[in-house]
Amino acid sequence: MSAPERDHGTTAVGRPTLELRGVDKSFGAVQVLHDVHLTVYPGKVTALVGDNGAGKSTLIKGIAGIHPFDSGEVEFEGERVTLHSPRDAAKLGIEVVYQDLALADNLDVVQNMFLGRERKRGVLLDEQSMEVAARETLAKLSVRTLKSVRQLVSSLSGGQRQTVAIAKAVLWESKLVILDEPTAALGVAQTRQVLDLVRRLADAGHAVVFITHNMVDVFEVADRVAALYLGRVAADVPIDQVDRTQVIELITSGRSGDLGLSAEDLED
């Protein structure tokens, strides 16, 4: 399925962008994440898979600083860091593109991309420089489907909105871009566009975490796959070491052959 000649992160790719070690998270009496280990590399797409309730959202909200982890170590580019608020995450260069997109329909593409971080000249908004920068970012990602960067977001298709949301994350020199099910609501052609964009993000050197339920998407763009099962990481491996059946087994039962959680982990 995947092309074996490509470097899928099997070989050492240097310092990981993000490394989680032994991360736990509980909400009240419910422990959602158990001893999570995850490594994310620059220039690689890591697919984060898992069934509903496996803890994918909790994991990314922890990385984004929205629901900080209870315990465990987080290293960002080799440095121990704390992620206590969205601001901490943003400062490090972690950008999250949420499923519900977080775009304002009544603003145009440029206005959305710079929302909350507008460029100014004195008190005036510097519209011209923002428009130029937005257009350059979109062009760098080879986005050609937008007719105008001054279009209102309400007039865009689902794929275009996703594109804008991703471009918004890239605009901020982000090192790690986390995409929460970016293709969930899209048609075939639009999914194609977004997957291409995800690939280009990684090729431009960003570390990309890509949450999805779609196995075709996983094998299409991912370099590595991390499977969550009931709040534990069942596997975090290069994509060429697993096949589709194995990934599905990891998602549904936490084990597949030699891979996956040990028997005592599964008994909890």
Partner: peptide, 23 residues
């Protein structure tokens, strides 16, 4: 399949800002 994606992306290369956005 994914390697095709990669080469396609590479072939198109970085776009001049003038490309696209014909509107």
């Amino acid at each position: 399949m994914s390697s095709n994606t990669l080469t396609a992306a590479e072939a198109s290369g970085p776009q001049k800002p003038a490309a696209g956005f014909e509107g």
